[in-house]
Amino acid sequence: MRPDPQAELLRLLDVMARLRHPDTGCPWDQVQDFATIAPYTIEEAYEVASAISAGPEPETLLEELGDLLFQVVYHARMAEERGWFGFGDVAASIASKMIRRHPHVFGEEAKRDASTQTEAWERQKAAERVERAETGTLSGVASSLPALTRAAKLTSRAARVGFDWPDAASVLDKLEEEADEVRAELAAADQVRLKDEVGDLLFVLANLARKLDLDPEYCLVGANAKFERRFSSVEAQLSAQGRSPAEATLDEMEDLWRAAKQREREA
């Protein structure tokens, strides 16, 4: 039998309150604030994403979701201590927002297909930004997002008002242009200029992923995992020979890398 959600949520809120108690709480938890906890919140969100991309295993996902929920409870508790709002206000706010953004479910509007609903969702979000006096096309895109994700979101917003490349092939042309600009800066090796040009190159790559309906952050997550997997294979092969990477030549490691790549293709 599964635990009662309401009872367990109340228990979690009580745990958080006791951790933050000024007299009997945990010394570490007592001194935290929004700024010090925010990095953990981001980290836990990534842990959830990582658990999902890995498989997901139910027990691992359960644990990671719990860690993320604790972050929400933590921030809500600190806000309550300041007299701003409590966890109930947080839950009420998101419930009301979801009802407002889904009139086809909670209202009288006819059922929509996914595409039409996405358009309606974006219109509702735009109206909410106007209510908050966020009138610019790019307003409301959180600056704390991972840079690749934020680049895709910024250009997605711009695309809604017609500021976009016509297709992925056009983005590839732009990518070649930006790569040439990086190449032109290599001789001078001016770090300021190189930083600017490499940034432009990454920004266009994020756009390319968006035009292909891919999440650039997850593309890079996959590439990181692939590199880690293949390099570990190179290390393992060298270790079997009684050597380390530092004792091998680049050509030898390249051969082992290609062999690892071929094994993956054949698997």
Rank of each mutant, 00 (worst) to 15 (best):
V198E: 10
V171T: 04
A206T: 05
V171C: 06
F163H: 06
P166H: 01
G136D: 08
E177G: 04
D113P: 14
S115I: 10
A179M: 12
D200V: 00
A179G: 09
A127Y: 07
D164C: 04
T118E: 15
D173C: 12
A168G: 07
V182C: 11
R210Q: 04
L201F: 11
T149K: 13
D200H: 06
A126L: 15
L201E: 07
T135D: 01
L148H: 10
L186C: 10
A151P: 02
R132Q: 14
A209G: 04
D173T: 09
L201C: 09
A184V: 02
L202G: 06
V130S: 07
S143V: 04
F203K: 08
R193Y: 00
L208Q: 08
Q124H: 14
R193G: 09
A126W: 06
A188Y: 05
T137P: 04
A126I: 09
W121G: 03
E178V: 07
L175Q: 11
T118N: 07
T149L: 13
L201N: 04
A189D: 14
E185L: 03
G199L: 07
T118V: 14
E197Y: 06
G136L: 07
A126T: 15
E131F: 10
V204W: 02
E181I: 01
E178H: 08
W121M: 15
D113F: 11
L145M: 11
A187M: 06
R210K: 03
S115F: 12
Q117R: 14
E134L: 13
A142H: 13
L212Y: 05
K174Q: 05
S139I: 01
R157S: 11
R160A: 14
K153A: 15
T135F: 11
P146V: 02
A168Q: 09
R150P: 10
D173A: 10
L194I: 13
A188W: 00
L172R: 11
L138G: 08
L154N: 02
G136W: 03
A120P: 05
S170G: 11
E128K: 10
L208N: 09
D196I: 00
L145D: 06
Q191S: 07
E181A: 00
R123H: 13
G136Y: 05
A126F: 15
R210I: 02
V198S: 12
V171N: 04
A188G: 11
E197W: 02
P146E: 05
D164W: 03
T116G: 15
L186Y: 09
L186N: 14
L201A: 09
T135I: 15
S115P: 08
L202E: 04
E178N: 10
E181N: 00
S139G: 07
V161I: 11
V171K: 00
R112T: 15
A206Q: 02
